[in-house]
C-alpha cells in the first residue's frame, strides 16, 4: 500500500509540475568541481623554562629533551587533504647562553622522517631576544609529516658562562602550525 501511495503521489505531482513549469539549463554535475581550500591554524607546543632548569643535581646538563606522541598528521583525512603545512617557531631568550632548538619527527616504527633545527642566540644583557623559524612542509617534507606519529623536542645549550641557581633569564618557545587543506569531490 505504501508503494501505491508513492506511485500515485509522484505521478500526480509530476503531472502538475510538468503542466505548469519550465526550467532553465542547470548542471548538477558541477558539484564534482567542488573545491574547498580552508587554512587552519593551531597552537602546537610551548616551553617556558628558567635558566636553572638546566641544572640537574647541581650540574649543568647539555640538553633538555622530551617527546610528544601525535596521531593527527597520519589521520586519513589529513593524509588525503593536506597540501601544505608550515610550522612557525619563536623563541624568546634572556639567558646569556645560546641554544639550538631541534625537532625530530619519527614514524610508527621509530624511523626518523624529518629533522629541523635553528639557533637562538644568547642575550649578554638579559634582554629578551626573539628568534623565529619557519619550517615549510611541501613535497617530500609533507610526505614525511604525514608519516609522523612522534615529535621529539631537544633544547641544546651551547658552551658559555656556566649556569648556577642564580643565573638570570629564561627561554620560551611558542609554536603554531598552519595547515592548508584542499577538499575536492
Amino acid at each position: 500500500m505504501f508503494n501505491q501511495i508513492f506511485k500515485y503521489y509522484i505521478k500526480a505531482f509530476l503531472c502538475v509540475l510538468v503542466c505548469v513549469s519550465c526550467t532553465k539549463d542547470v548542471d548538477f554535475n558541477q558539484f564534482n568541481d567542488l573545491q574547498l581550500t580552508p587554512v587552519f591554524e593551531s597552537s602546537l607546543v610551548y616551553i617556558d623554562e628558567p635558566a636553572n632548569k638546566f641544572l640537574v643535581n647541581g650540574n649543568e646538563t647539555s640538553y633538555l629533551q622530551d617527546s610528544v606522541n601525535i596521531d593527527f598528521f597520519n589521520d586519513s583525512f589529513v593524509v588525503d587533504h593536506l597540501v601544505k603545512a608550515e610550522f612557525l617557531l619563536e623563541t624568546t631568550n634572556s639567558i646569556n647562553r645560546s641554544f639550538i632548538v631541534e625537532v625530530d619527527m619519527f614514524d610508527d616504527s621509530n624511523q626518523l622522517q624529518h629533522r629541523f633545527s635553528f639557533s637562538s642566540s644568547g642575550s649578554p644583557d638579559h634582554s629578551p631576544l626573539v628568534t623565529e623559524h619557519l619550517e615549510v612542509f611541501e613535497n617530500d617534507a609533507l610526505e614525511a609529516l604525514k608519516n609522523t606519529t612522534k615529535l621529539v623536542f631537544t633544547l641544546y645549550i651551547l658552551p658559555g658562562e656556566p649556569i648556577n641557581e642564580n643565573t638570570i633569564g629564561r627561554i620560551t618557545l611558542k609554536s603554531k602550525g598552519s595547515f592548508y587543506l584542499k577538499i575536492e569531490r
Binding site: S42, S43, L44, V45, Y46, I47, D48, E49, K53, L64, Q65, D66, S67, V68, L151, F153, L155, S175, K176
Partner: peptide, 18 residues
C-alpha cells in the same frame, strides 16, 4: 581551552607527573 602542549617538564611545580 587548547593552547598547545608543553613537552618539557610539565610536572614542574605542581607535583604532577608527565
Amino acid at each position: 581551552v587548547f593552547e598547545g602542549v608543553n613537552p618539557l617538564f610539565p610536572e614542574t611545580g605542581t607535583g604532577q607527573t608527565a
